[in-house]
Design a binder for these strands. Sequence first.
DNA 1: TTTTGTTGTG
Length: 418
Amino acid sequence: MYQRNISEEAILTLLQGCNSMCRLRKIHAQAVIHGLDLRPSVAGKLLCFCATSAAGDLSYAVHLFSRFSSPLTSHWNYLIRGFSVSPSPTFSISLYNYMFYSPLARPDAATFSFLLKACSKAVAAGKCREVHGSIFRFGFPSNVIVCTNLSRAYADNGSVEDARKVFDEMPERDIVSWNSIIACYCKAGLHIEALKVFEEMRAKGLGLDEFTVVVLLSSCAHLGALELGVWVHRFSQENGFLGRNVLVGNALVDMYAKCGSLEQARQVFDRMIKRDAFSWNSMLFGLGIHGHGKEAILLFRQMLLSGVKPNLVSFLGLLMACSHQGLAEEGLEFFHLMSSKFHVKPDAKHYCCVVDMLGRAGRLERALECIKSSPFVGDPVLWRALLSACKIHKNIEIGEISLGHLIETSAYNADSAG
DNA sequence: TTTTGTTGTG
């Protein structure tokens, strides 16, 4: 018995330092051999790692869970949480439904928080309403975390009105709830509303944190609200946000670039201590939109030297920059390099940009070839781009081909939609 | 065990 107790503690210590499934399997095997795998503390920790850790494994978690004769609320929560951020969030919803047949388990605040996250990700509007009712039945209508998640789930399911209603009816709100509702408006493209809610927040005497600043700058960027953006910049500087949070710098670069203050964008970018793909992409787009193709190419080379890997958005920014400055040769070269060297598969937007770029340069034959050899030959957007280039260059032959494809693809799309 | 954030043509 003494030996067993020590072993249980030893297993728990091992689990504390576990950082991979490989190690977890070994620890699990040891626990099974010593008959400790179903001890509540051991079983709970094993399940927690598999279900919720980044290095975990959800199928292994399900296997462990199936061995419990009467799982507790915390066990259900681990699985619901794990699936809520997985590619199959609907499993969280199914688990929640099964939970009601389990005698020992009763949903708690954490259950609803994770479940609502799954509803957000799975796009389950009906389930949001159902969960909303259950939150009242189980006694959590004044839990700030649950209600913030509920509000967010409504917004992610397309109803900002319901999100706002939940927010308004919350008996207590914290800075996270405010940041969340502002983000809901921002995400829905309702930027003026987002700024209005921010004013309400200020009127209540609440301060801003890094989350508020980032989402606020995004709305400023969309509205071209430079004055507020500058105020947020100063506030961020005074509060040391810029030094410790790369997202604040990124949002500032984007805001300045979209508001037309390219020099300011560049200044913030140059002063950033750390830069990620978002930082480089925002700056690339800023240069591209304002017609600085050569500078964008230079910046892209610096990005490579810095060791940050370019992604789909980087190449789109780069191609746009080339297109806007008539750098068709350079653009084509980057377009080829993106898949051959960088293993980034171009999507329809990249092809569209190349067609546009070739079209502007009058290279209509080459643009036609590009569409024909692409996986997006059925996409009317590409043919529309080619047709407008044909209009500019008065090329009837290729114009006719484009129009034919446009009619064909539109008809096909209409058929498949009906 | 639970909540919030940035980049993508015309």
